[in-house]
């Protein structure tokens, strides 16, 4: 019970702080938008070809933007050594992970929902043909990135490389999420049957569960000194 309570406390604290500063959402949003614009220069944006690779572009933009957002989300805990204040409390250190994971996922998801129509307009895509499924892909994919990203933002903050370390660790490990999210998004963008995406969605759900549990168990070791 104490884990749940502390998780909620940290999540609520992050919501409050984000409402004030908008650090994470603005990082993901602005960077994601910039990448979307940059992508349009690399090929004819409204062609058929764009439709085939749009899923990939979308998730690449989200992933790179997420790196920035995750770093800023964790910077909140390292300023004034707040993390030590959290470690002093009689709460499960894993709850810090779960609380940050929830808030990171929520902020990234929010920014992605704003970015999605931008991609739709730029690349002439109908992203909301199957809104329920699209949301599910976004949720599972973002959760997967955040599950690893929250963990490795803490690892990176403890190295001398600081924020630079996060993409180096996160990108190779997140390859399965990237593949699964891109594949299922591509299915939704084309007129292929949903069954093609089902395998990938189950894969994403499995990935999310495995790494959420694993990182929750391992997170206390990252905080130790």
């Amino acid at each position: 019970m104490s884990t749940l309570r502390a998780t909620v406390a940290i999540f609520a604290k992050d919501l409050l702080a984000e409402r004030r500063t908008k650090d994470v959402v603005s990082a993901v949003l602005l960077f994601g938008f910039t990448i979307a614009v940059a992508f349009t220069f690399s090929f004819e944006p409204s062609s058929e070809q764009a439709r085939a690779i749009a899923g990939g572009l979308l998730w690449l933009a989200f992933l790179f933007a997420a790196v920035l957002g995750l770093n800023r989300g964790f910077a909140r805990e390292t300023a004034n050594q707040c993390l030590q204040g959290l470690r002093l409390a009689p709460a499960d250190p894993g709850a810090i992970y779960l609380g940050k994971l929830l808030s990171n996922t929520l902020f990234m998801l929010f920014a992605e929902l704003v970015l999605l129509p931008v991609f739709g307009v730029f690349f002439n895509l109908s992203l909301w043909a199957r809104p329920g499924w699209m949301l599910l892909v976004l949720l599972l994919g973002t959760w997967g990135v955040a599950a690893l990203g929250t963990m490795f933002s803490a690892v990176s903050a403890n190295t001398r490389m600081q924020e630079l370390m996060l993409p180096l660790l996160l990108l190779p490990l997140a390859v399965p999420v990237l593949i699964a999210a891109i594949e299922s998004t591509t299915v939704l963008l084309s007129d292929r049957p949903l069954a093609d995406a089902a395998l990938w969605l189950r894969f994403l759900a499995g990935f999310d569960i495995i790494f959420t549990v694993l990182c929750w168990l391992l997170f206390p070791y990252v905080l130790e000194e």
């Binding site: 690893l148 690892v155 490990l173 399965p176 593949i179 594949e183």
Partner: peptide, 24 residues
């Protein structure tokens, strides 16, 4: 400690990377 955490998560990720690539 940090290296151990990366070493464990990295190894758990390997079969999943392989699976994702094969299905893909």
């Amino acid at each position: 400690l940090l290296a151990a955490v990366v070493g464990i998560i990295g190894f758990v990720d390997v079969p999943i990377v392989y699976m994702a690539n094969r299905w893909w």
